[in-house]
Amino acid sequence: MPESKIRVLIAKPGLDGHDRGAKVVARILRDAGMEVIYTGLRQTAEMIVAAALQEDVDVIGLSILSGAHMTLFPRVLELAKEKGLGDVLYLVGGIIPDDDVPALKEMGITGFFGPGASAKEIAGFIKQHVERG
């Protein structure tokens, strides 16, 4: 009986020390039937990409934090492409300054979810964009 599940990596890059939002999203996606790998706090771009590669995920969700995203996210995407993970779906969660969205889109980030995003919205977006599962 072949079965296939959407696999998602949730990572919290950077140095700040709280991850409630990331954990909430992880639970939402589990409850939507996905397999969610949570990597914990203080992740470097190298750690995130290495984990995504070993876990063969379809989606990488990055939790945003004050300011650092404009330097960290490009590094994650660049490294990921280098390692052949170009076809992964990238999402960002958190408070995203409007001014930054175009640049992030340009880098290859597809989904943006602010603090008010509903469970249905996030899970629905992923299911729509990922073929398997």
């Binding site: 599940k5 639970r27 996606l29 939507a32 039937g33 969610v36 949570y38 990597t39 914990g40």
Partner: peptide, 13 residues
């Protein structure tokens, strides 16, 4: 749900 939260990796990351 058929989903899973895979948390072991946190300690090994």
């Amino acid at each position: 749900s058929g989903g899973a939260l895979l948390g072991d990796r946190i300690r090994m990351q």
